[in-house]
Design a protein around this nucleic acid. Structure first.
Lengths: 255, 255
DNA sequence: CTTATTTGTCTAGTTATATAGACAACTGTA
DNA sequence: TACAGTTGTCTATATAACTAGACAAATAAG
């Protein structure tokens, strides 16, 4: 007998189709042990009973997850989980993208997809402790783990202070190394704000998410050892693919 | 002229009704400046054009938000935002619920709604550094800010170590004070894991959320000054009502 | 009072979701 | 081979969601 998981809780007339609620529930349930040791899901008939819906509705949900690459359906045999695990992304004083994933045996890559020199807008100027309108380097990148996109980041840097940062970024493909090449050997995470939203169409397209899925948004400020901000970034993580792990420092003495 | 905000991006055939996508977009847009200085939204006709849908579809979205208590529609005048702001909940080494909200001028109340002595399950035992099956106190509470529920927490404590904690909790209505009465003067946040999910039916009922909205889930371990875990808690925050603010300590020296 | 603008209500028709039932196609096992 | 259990496909019907258009009712301004 396949696994029996507590899968109740679909609502009607909510503006969210039953098949999508079920798809979301199955996707979330996978990480918490849905599917037996071979990764086999309960049969469509069983799932339909558990959720209290028609078998066809369950089939719509499964079809969507097959399209996402999460499930594989085999006629006569059953439906199986393809990618069981979720990534844990640590946020510490020394958060660095590639290094964090390497520790989990993941091949993490941050790929630069676009960049521009723009005038600092309100948020950016405030976070970087600059005047509004001064030139800042803005970069967009996509974070990938084992060939699956897990995040996308927009980051801003003081162009006056780091005029050659972009070329260093292009050659090293790493913020840490680009900073080092610009004469900044070390930096630490100063603050992190976390929000959660539904995926936008851009998220869906760039990270290959399914509509209605969730993104965790972090607003982060990194500063040099004197406390001067050097990077402001907004990262959108696929909540289906990553958790955020907060490691608080050993001595918190903020007022 | 009312505010013009970048509100594009509704998809079709996604399993999420257009009116719900629009409701979510408006709800999210409010905090980032949707609505002019008087809180007036663009007219239904304008919104329909911006989203590329029929006016009736926008009306469904607005109707849902009026039901949530976020908007107020006045015939002949327009539609107005009621509660514009979002709460920021800080996570530090010394995170305490009521104190955190008090700093923002919010009247924060954590209300105990149920409790039980149970046998420690896997997660709980691991997090509290106990054997599986030993008795633990489990409490459920709802966090409220200015009469709006913003979070709900399930927390576990070692019953052998803190046998009188429950009675202290009932009299003081504060974990910090209950610990103090049990002889534990100070404790700090050891680790925090953050996930995001769609609201369950329980979330919707207990916190008065709308279906399809998002909850931020934190798994937190608090420890005494010797590093022994004293509390394990899972808190579900309404992502529409709170942000999480991470304050990393001044010296992070974990390996 | 008149007019433009806004939200509120109604009817009608189309498309997307969901249910119901039947049966085919495939797999593993007795 | 026969059979039980599974996914795949088909038809039919009912309900929710969306579009379209028209007009009423309230508000504010000329």
């Amino acid at each position: 007998m396949a696994s029996e998981i507590m899968l109740r809780g679909v609502g009607r007339r909510t503006g969210i189709a039953l098949w999508r609620q079920i798809a979301d529930a199955i996707r979330a349930g996978i990480s918490s042990g849905l599917g037996d040791e071979t990764g086999k899901l309960p049969s469509e008939t069983e799932l339909a009973e558990q959720f209290g819906v028609n078998r066809h509705t369950v089939r719509s949900a499964i079809s969507a997850l097959v399209n996402e690459g999460i499930l594989r359906a085999e006629q006569g045999r059953g439906t199986f989980v393809i990618s069981p695990s979720r990534l844990t992304y640590p946020i510490t004083r020394r958060t660095r993208f590639s290094a964090s994933l390497a520790e989990q045996g993941q091949r993490g890559v941050s790929r630069l997809i676009s960049h521009d020199i723009i005038e600092a807008h309100r948020d950016v100027a405030t976070s970087l402790d600059l005047e509004e309108g001064v030139p800042v380097l803005q970069i967009n990148s996509v974070g990938t783990s084992d060939d699956t996109p897990v995040s996308r980041t927009t980051a801003w840097f003081d162009h006056a202070r780091f005029p050659d940062l972009l070329s260093h970024l292009k050659t090293t493909n790493s913020v840490t190394k680009a900073f080092a090449a610009s004469g900044l050997d070390d930096y630490v995470r100063q603050s992190t704000l976390i929000e959660a939203y539904h995926a936008t169409l851009d998220d869906i397209e760039i990270m290959g998410l399914s509509p209605g899925s969730i993104v965790l948004v972090t607003h982060a400020v990194n500063a040099d050892l004197d406390g001067r901000p050097v990077e402001y970034s907004k990262t959108r993580f696929s909540a289906d693919r990553v958790n955020l792990q907060i490691e608080l420092g050993s001595n918190a003495a903020e007022d």
